[in-house]
């Protein structure tokens, strides 16, 4: 369980995280979604006690991070796979972490085996590929067998095999009843990995809820019938927004049930009634378009 309450972080005049409140529940993979620079990493650093919030607080397993005894036993995090001394071997990197939290030395070999780095455990971490570094970072996160896990952009730059491996790992960790928060700016990836979403833009909470609901919120209903003008009028009268397209009428803000019933109530015939599920990308752009920090202004493109 991660509880974020009114978390705020300012850097000079910019507010990186603005009064952010959300919960991350155990047993699910929760996606932490937002464009680049929206405050995801800053939020995660504050949850881990690395950065000091200007207001609000974050609690992990009911405690502030600083109050946790041997925190690696409760929280595991991969914020950046490059947080390793390049001349230190993978095994030494995990050994000092284990010793700092009183974890048995045997755990080092166990997690190396879990992430498949046993063969290169003695090699210096600086020679690792991005995928291997990412696995080492995950090994460090799993070291204390923690109930809460945070991953910041874990699939960035990975090959498809690595992406699949991380996706399955996160789902397995959640299925074991752990709390998993994973940030990404890749919505399509989140749609496959996360069952819950926390969406932020410019440090503010934009939306929170099940991924399925989030995807459906961007859905339209396409209707086609012999008398499009009458259907459009009936739907507008029922309070829907209707746009005419080549394929038929595009109705926004409704489900197939409600649209079908509205047309039926007007006594009109339909030839087609289809849910057009918008992509997660479209839904996301729709929700966060006011909150993108570095938006292209479209300069040079004639209006």
């Amino acid at each position: 369980m991660i509880e974020v309450r009114g978390l705020t972080k300012r850097y000079g005049r910019t507010t990186a995280v603005d009064d952010l409140t959300f919960d991350v529940r155990p047993g699910t993979v929760t996606g932490f979604l937002g464009p680049n620079g929206s405050g995801k990493s800053t939020t995660m650093r504050m949850v881990l006690g690395l950065d000091r919030p200007d207001a609000g607080e974050a609690r992990v397993a009911g405690k502030r991070y600083a109050e946790l005894r041997d925190p690696l036993r409760t929280v595991g995090a991969l914020l950046d796979a490059k947080w390793v001394h390049p001349n230190r071997s993978a095994r030494s990197h995990l050994r000092w972490l284990a010793r700092a939290n009183g974890l048995p030395a045997g755990r080092v070999d166990e997690v190396l085996d879990t992430v498949g780095l046993t063969a290169v455990a003695g090699k210096r971490a600086g020679a690792f590929s991005l995928g291997m570094s990412q696995r080492l970072g995950i090994a460090a996160a799993l070291l204390g067998d923690p109930q809460v896990l945070l991953f910041d952009e874990p699939v960035n730059g990975l090959d498809p095999e690595g992406i699949l491996w991380i996706r399955r790992l996160m789902q397995r960790l959640a299925a074991e009843g752990r709390t998993v928060l994973v940030s990404s700016h890749l919505l399509s990836e989140m749609a496959l990995t996360a069952t819950e979403l926390v969406v932020i833009g410019r440090g503010r909470l934009v939306a929170q809820g099940p991924t399925a609901q989030f995807v459906d919120s961007g859905a339209d209903v396409l209707v086609r019938g012999p008398r499009p003008d009458a259907i459009a009028a009936a739907l507008r009268a029922a309070g829907f927004e209707v746009a005419e397209e080549q394929a038929g009428l595009l109705v926004t803000g409704g489900t197939t049930e409600r649209v079908g019933e509205a047309v039926g109530a007007a006594g009109l015939v339909l030839h087609e009634l289809t849910l057009r599920r918008g992509s997660l990308e479209e839904a996301f752009m729709e929700i966060t378009k006011q909150d993108v920090e570095y938006a292209s202004t479209g300069a040079g493109v004639p209006a």
């Binding site: 925190p71 929280v75 914020l79 950046d80 390793v84 001394h85 390049p86 460090a140």
Partner: peptide
Amino acid sequence: TTEYRYSTIRMTFEAVPN
């Protein structure tokens, strides 16, 4: 300073918040 250079200081403070 190498801990700051390679950000292992953050790993240190993750493991040891004190």
